[in-house]
Every structure is written in C-alpha cells, then in structure tokens.
Computed example of a mutant assay.
Amino acid sequence: MVNRLLLGRALSALATALIPTTLTLAVLRVTGDGGAVGLVLASELIPLLLLLPFGGVLADRLRPGRVVLLADLTRCLTQAAMAVELLLGLTRLLDLAILSAVAGAAIAFGSPAVPRLVVAVVPGPDRLRVNARIGVATSLSAVAAPAIAGTIIVVAGPGWAAALTAVLFACSAVTLGGIRTDSAVAAPQNFWDDLGQGWREIRQRPWFLGCVLGHGVWHFVAGLFLTLAPVAAVHHLGGETSWMVIVQSGTVGLVLGVFAAPRLRVRRPLVAVQAGAACYLLPMVALAMSAPAAVLAGAYFVAMFGLGLLSPLWETVVAEEIPEGALGRVRAFDQLISFASRPFGLAVAAPLAGVTGVTALALTGGVLVAAANLAALSPHIRKATTGERVR
C-alpha cells in the first residue's frame, strides 16, 4: 500500500506541475496577452480558496481514498476537455477559465484528504520517511514538468500536453483510489458545527496556529522575492542566465533538504521547521544589498534547503499531534493560508516596491519572515526544546 501511495502521489504531482506551463503557452498562442494568462490561472485559485473549508469537512466525513479518487478523476476530465478543445483548434478563453475553475474546486476537496490518506496507510514511525519521498517526487516534478510540457508543446502543440496531463491524473486516481483504508470517519453533523469543531482543534493548539501564520508569512515573502529577484537578476546581475542559476540553486537546495530530513537526527522537529522557514531571511537580505548573483544563489540555496527540511517534518508533526478525525479540517486551514498568501505577495510586490523601493521592501520582508516564524516558537519553546509531546 505504501508503494502504491508513493506512486499515486508522484503521478499526481507531475500532472499538477505540467498544468501552469501548458495553460500559459496555450493562452499566449491564442491571445498573446499576459493578462489573459493571469485570468485563466486565477480562475483555478478563486474556487480553490472559497471551497477549501468545505473540502476539509468532507475529508473528515468520507474515506480519504474515495475523495482523492473523485478529485483526481475530475481533474482528469477537465484536462481531457482542454485537450480536445486545443487539438480541435476551438480554443476559447472562457472555456479554459471555466475548466480551470472546476479543477480548482477539485483541488479544494482533494488536497485536505491527502494527509488523512497518508496517516491511514503509513505507520507512525515510517511517516517522516514517506513524507520525505513524497516531497522528493513533488520537487523533482516541479523541476521536470516545465521542460516536459514545453517540449511537447513545441513538437506537437499544447493539446497533447493537456492530454498527457489527463492520462497522468487518470493513473493517479486509479492508483490512490484503489487504496483500502480503515480510517476513522467523523459522524456527519451540521456543516458549521463540523467547521467549528475543526477550528476548536486549532485553538486548542496555539503552536499550530502560530506556525501556520508564520508559514503564511513565508509564502507572502516568497511571492515578493519571486517578483523582485528576477527583475534584479536580469537588469543588474548578468541577465536571464543569472536568474536561472539562482532558481536552479534553490531547486537543488530544496531536493537536498527533503532528502536530508529523514536522515538527520532532529530531536526538536518543530524548532527545525520554524528555523527552516526563517532561513528565507537570507535571500531577502542578499536582494536588498544588491549582492552578486553567486551570493544570492547561495542564500536562496540555504533558504530552499530549509524549506526541504520543513515540509516532511511539518507533515509528520501535524499527523502525530492532530486527531485523525479532524485532520482534514485542520489541514484545510493550513492550506488555505498557504494558497492565499503567495499570490497576494506576487500581486503586491511591484506596487509596494514602487512606493518603498526594493531595498526597504526586501529588508522588511526578510525581517518579517524570520520574526514571524521564530516568534511562533516562543510560547512553547520549553516544550519544543525538551522533547515533550508538542514539538
């Protein structure tokens, strides 16, 4: 079952990573308008954010395998419909936006069920190792997918890239949906009662709320960096090649961090999680100081190595500390903060930089991400450093 889980998650991660490049190039071929690209991509995000709380409740009411099966099948159908339209040359912006919105709704219902599926399949002592392997698959997919999608689009057209994505989602749906679990299922109540109970689980764990808000700040600051740093690299640090070196340095750091997480003897995982997030201070300071490309690449490597450590450790700690029957609702809140924060950072980076300047904004963002994540430990630093239950 564990191997089946890993295969299904790898297929789903690759399919997910193919979509942005496919949609971007498909829309640009039709309209040549960057604003149209933003509209189609935002069409997925809006229903995702609105429906995540409902998805969390559903994830705790139903068997996680069934929820993931339906979610990935829905995403398969949306990609298949896109493929047909693109292959027939009938591309309409409204159609792509609607299909993206349906896919966003599917993500909202499917993503909170995934942590419950991992908990149901993987014994506690093995979860860190499995979460790390899932993280490696996700990271490698993010690296490989743009090249795969780009090559297919250049050779055969965006319709075939969408078709491949549909096939991958079909395979992941069959693989994950076929996993049989004995997960505890919450007794159905009024939706608002279920949602309120999930929020009470969060309020009873201030460490969780503090860490999630800190991670939200991380995503916001990452949005700032990913908007400001490419401009600085292209205009002042040697051009597009320098930015590619910086990005690839971060990718290498991320993959190495995920590999290292289960191999390091981390006695205080919560401290490691928050320290990993706080490392994003480094590239923000390097950006503010107009450091050479090599320095910025090194700083981004360390920051992404911290993220690589953070992801599997956080998944494992939350699975251990949150009751399985509430895990879907609790993780939906976690994902809601993460999904919302980075697009917000991407949207406001340029206007804020126009008011404050890049140096002041980058320094502020760096201090903010470090302070928010390290401060999350302060009420529980004694427990976190003595190895008690809340880590």
Rank of each mutant, 00 (worst) to 15 (best):
M1L: 14
R4L: 13
L6N: 03
L7Q: 06
R9D: 13
S12F: 09
A13D: 07
I19C: 00
R29W: 04
T31Y: 09
G32W: 08
G35A: 13
G35F: 11
G38Y: 09
L49E: 06
P53A: 10
L58E: 01
A59S: 05
R61Q: 03
L70Y: 14
A71P: 01
D72S: 04
D72F: 11
T74W: 11
Q79D: 12
A81R: 02
L86Y: 06
L88H: 09
L96K: 03
A97I: 05
A97L: 05
L99V: 03
S100G: 02
A101I: 11
A101K: 07
V102T: 07
I107L: 15
F109I: 04
V114E: 15
V118T: 14
A120E: 03
V122T: 13
P123M: 10
G124Q: 13
R129F: 06
R129C: 03
R133C: 05
T138V: 14
T138N: 14
A142C: 00
A142V: 07
P146S: 12
P146G: 07
T151V: 13
I152V: 14
I153L: 10
A156Q: 06
A162Y: 08
A166S: 13
L168P: 02
G177R: 02
G177E: 01
G177V: 07
G178K: 02
I179Y: 07
T181Y: 09
V185T: 13
N190D: 15
D194E: 15
G196E: 03
R203L: 12
Q204C: 10
W207Y: 10
G210L: 14
G214F: 10
H219A: 13
L228Q: 04
A233F: 05
A233Y: 03
H235W: 06
H236P: 00
G239T: 08
W243A: 03
V245N: 06
V247Q: 12
T251R: 13
L256F: 11
R263D: 01
R263K: 13
L264A: 06
V266A: 02
R267Y: 07
R267G: 14
V271Q: 00
A272V: 15
Q274H: 14
Q274R: 12
A277L: 15
L287K: 03
M289Y: 04
A291N: 03
P292W: 13
V295Y: 05
L296E: 08
A299M: 10
A299T: 11
A299H: 02
G308N: 06
P312L: 11
P312W: 11
P312T: 07
E315L: 14
E321K: 14
E324I: 13
A326N: 10
L327Q: 12
V330K: 00
F333G: 01
D334I: 06
Q335A: 12
L336N: 04
S338Y: 10
S338D: 11
R342G: 06
F344A: 15
F344L: 15
F344T: 15
A347K: 04
A349C: 04
G354Y: 11
G357F: 12
A362S: 15
A362G: 05
V367L: 15
V369E: 08
A372F: 07
A372I: 02
L374G: 05
A376P: 01
L377C: 05
I381H: 06
K383I: 00
T385G: 10
V390N: 00
R391Q: 13
R391W: 13
